[in-house]
Amino acid sequence: QGDIVVALYPYDGIHPDDLSFKKGEKMKVLEEHGEWWKAKSLLTKKEGFIPSNYVAKLN
């Protein structure tokens, strides 16, 4: 089961498979690959890669 993270900063995706998000948006982490994680937005239901240093895990 994936962790839920919250965006600390907004992110505008650079690549087509990036997931753009707004500050405060919550996402479910699907896979962790070093600095880039695959996640699904709980708001938009879209999936893509996010920079892990832009988010914090919720406990």
Results as ranks from 00 to 15, higher is better:
residue 1 Q to G: 12
residue 1 Q to P: 13
residue 2 G to H: 12
residue 3 D to M: 15
residue 3 D to Y: 15
residue 4 I to A: 03
residue 4 I to V: 09
residue 5 V to C: 12
residue 5 V to I: 07
residue 6 V to T: 06
residue 6 V to D: 02
residue 6 V to S: 04
residue 6 V to A: 04
residue 7 A to S: 05
residue 8 L to S: 03
residue 8 L to W: 04
residue 9 Y to T: 06
residue 10 P to Y: 08
residue 10 P to G: 12
residue 11 Y to A: 01
residue 12 D to E: 14
residue 13 G to F: 02
residue 14 I to Q: 12
residue 15 H to G: 13
residue 15 H to L: 09
residue 16 P to Q: 10
residue 17 D to E: 12
residue 17 D to G: 15
residue 17 D to I: 07
residue 18 D to N: 09
residue 19 L to W: 02
residue 19 L to V: 02
residue 19 L to Y: 03
residue 19 L to H: 00
residue 20 S to M: 06
residue 21 F to E: 00
residue 21 F to W: 02
residue 22 K to C: 10
residue 23 K to M: 09
residue 23 K to Y: 07
residue 23 K to G: 05
residue 23 K to H: 06
residue 24 G to M: 04
residue 24 G to Y: 06
residue 25 E to C: 04
residue 26 K to T: 10
residue 27 M to Y: 02
residue 27 M to V: 02
residue 27 M to H: 01
residue 27 M to D: 00
residue 29 V to P: 02
residue 29 V to R: 02
residue 29 V to I: 15
residue 29 V to L: 15
residue 30 L to R: 03
residue 30 L to W: 05
residue 30 L to S: 05
residue 31 E to C: 13
residue 32 E to P: 08
residue 33 H to V: 10
residue 33 H to N: 12
residue 34 G to M: 05
residue 34 G to D: 06
residue 34 G to Q: 05
residue 35 E to H: 15
residue 36 W to R: 15
residue 37 W to P: 05
residue 39 A to I: 06
residue 40 K to V: 14
residue 40 K to Q: 13
residue 40 K to A: 09
residue 41 S to M: 05
residue 41 S to F: 01
residue 42 L to P: 01
residue 43 L to H: 09
residue 43 L to E: 10
residue 44 T to K: 02
residue 46 K to P: 00
residue 47 E to D: 06
residue 48 G to E: 00
residue 48 G to C: 02
residue 48 G to A: 01
residue 49 F to W: 15
residue 49 F to A: 05
residue 50 I to L: 05
residue 50 I to G: 00
residue 50 I to R: 01
residue 51 P to D: 04
residue 52 S to N: 08
residue 52 S to A: 13
residue 53 N to C: 14
residue 53 N to W: 15
residue 54 Y to C: 08
residue 56 A to P: 02
residue 56 A to N: 06
residue 57 K to N: 07
residue 57 K to P: 12
residue 57 K to Y: 14
residue 58 L to N: 06
residue 58 L to V: 13
residue 59 N to F: 11
residue 59 N to D: 13
